[in-house]
């Protein structure tokens, strides 16, 4: 069993290396002197200096984060609520709804983008943040729903029953029992939604206005001039900040867990 565990951990290490290898390359090349970021020329910090003054990049990064954050919240609400209701109750036409929910995943982005654009024009919704968020939620929430559904599958029904027997209303039972039980799936769904939203180009192009440009749009636009290392620099700054934030949260949580043990979690199963 120990050997098996070792093997699994080694495999995980390798996969993490695979995931981070390009990121490492990207970080290294953010220090590349060459404007055409293809061949290594020499070390420089110039691109970092430039990123701060590049209003286009900074503003689009802000837009991206904002859109991704709002999208995640809506996707989690729609996806979790939807998955629970579809699991708990027997609705007529449920299978049809299940199928429809996942259509945005298969539809090619350009079609989703164009059709949503037409829709927004028809209902006279002005292009901007709202339209971008709507379209992002549309292709993100199925991911949350699928993750939560998988977690719900085979859930012990006694769980909710027990809470209801103890006199909790279905809402309280959902909030206090089901949501905590689903949390790992909700978290992974949220991560997927956030990531997908942060990375989308085509749907965003069709549904954004000049003021709501996102970072990927900005980056794709720059390919024509050659991908210069300032794009790597801003990615590096962002990744660095994220890792730092995650580690800090981790540390804070550990401390929190020590002082106030296990009100919500933190206990080993």
């Amino acid at each position: 069993m120990k050997a098996a565990r070792r093997l699994l951990e080694a495999h995980t290490g390798l996969v993490l290396f695979f995931l981070y290898a390009p990121i490492l390359v990207l970080v290294v090349y953010s220090f590349n002197e060459a404007k055409l970021n293809v061949v290594w020329k020499g070390f420089t910090l110039e691109w970092y200096a430039r990123v701060w003054t590049d209003t286009g990049l900074v503003r689009s990064l802000q837009n991206s984060l904002m859109v991704a954050a709002i999208t995640t919240v809506f996707s989690v609400a729609l996806g979790t609520g939807g998955a629970w209701l579809l699991f708990r109750y027997r609705y007529p036409g449920e299978r049809l709804l299940q199928t429809l929910v996942f259509l945005p995943m298969i539809v090619p982005e350009v079609i989703l983008g164009v059709s949503l654009l037409i829709l927004f024009v028809v209902v006279r919704l002005e292009l901007g943040f709202t339209t971008v968020v709507i379209s992002h939620v549309t292709f993100c929430f199925p991911f949350v729903l699928a993750a939560v559904e998988a977690r719900l599958a085979g859930m012990d029904p006694a769980l909710e029953e027990a809470a209801l027997d103890l006199g909790a209303t279905p809402f309280v039972a959902f909030h206090k029992v089901i949501v905590p039980y689903l949390m790992p799936a909700i978290a992974s769904g949220a991560l997927m939604a956030f990531t997908l939203s942060l990375d989308d180009v085509i749907v965003t192009y069709f549904t954004a206005s000049a003021a709501s440009r996102t970072l990927p749009l900005e980056m794709f636009g720059r390919v024509k001039k050659g991908v210069d290392p300032s794009l790597n620099a801003i990615s590096t700054v962002f990744i660095g900040a994220t890792i730092l934030a995650v580690l800090t949260t981790q540390l804070l949580n550990r401390r929190g867990a020590l002082t106030a043990p296990a009100t919500q979690g933190g206990e080993k199963p």
Binding site: T195, L198, D199, V201, V227, I239
Partner: peptide
């Protein structure tokens, strides 16, 4: 997930 918070293109 973090590696995927960089742009696809980069």
């Amino acid at each position: 997930m973090i590696p995927f918070w960089t742009s696809f293109l980069i």
